[in-house]
Design a protein around this nucleic acid. Structure first.
Lengths: 108, 108
DNA sequence: CCGAGTGTTCGACGGAAACCATACACTCCG
DNA sequence: CGGAGTGTATGGTTTCCGTCGAACACTCGG
């Protein structure tokens, strides 16, 4: 009967519409998080697990960064077996903050 | 002969074109500086001296914030007698970071 | 059922940044 | 010249944020 699904707490998401500008800017004011967003933008949706990013920090810090990105409405996460895969919320975020994402992605 | 002008060191300016994205975002990730930019945007050019802004910090901190804004190519300053008046670098900054300024000004 | 892999949480640490009070430099005006 | 007004510089304090190590929770595969 009961469907056998995840027993893990689903990550809390915040829609970009509810995010203050200051929060969005603060989230993007960090080199590690910028890297995460850029790598994520360059990959197909739902293909990148949290541990698959090339950043020079431990997994504790990494987890924290993803938490910040979620809190800014930049990233959506879904549990897929033992892994947690990510998606960049392109359209939603761009609708709320037009041009901001493009700015971060286009820059070098 | 010699023109009698300011003996004060001119403030160092950085053109937006030479500003990294991270620096721009970091400069705008502060409530006080956002207020400064917004108030500045709502006033005629070269009319606001540094001390004329309504922010809850001492003048030392205020001076620091203006230094950060200059370093991000957001503000230009000119000495006018005893006062130092400001200008928001709208066009230059917007040319370098399209939409970013609009985002900050439009929001609340 | 146990071990490996993955990610979160907790406490602690260190460095960066914001802040203040003071002292200083410069300008104007009486 | 001297005082008031304005902004910067310096030094020291506090607060915040990114980081780590270790412990824990969950999933999958032998």
């Amino acid at each position: 009967m009961a469907e056998r699904v995840s027993h893990r707490a689903a990550p809390e998401h915040i829609h970009p519409d509810e995010v203050p500008v200051l929060t969005a800017l603060a989230a993007l004011s960090d080199p590690v998080r910028i890297t995460l967003v850029r790598e994520l933008a360059g990959s197909p949706v739902w293909t990148r697990s949290c541990g698959s990013f090339d950043v020079p920090v431990g997994k504790a810090a990494l987890s924290h960064h993803f938490s910040v990105l979620r809190g800014a409405g930049l990233v959506e996460q879904r549990d897929e077996g033992a892994r947690r895969v990510n998606r960049l919320r392109r359209e939603e975020f761009d609708a709320r903050f037009p041009g901001l994402l493009a700015l971060v992605l286009r820059e070098d």
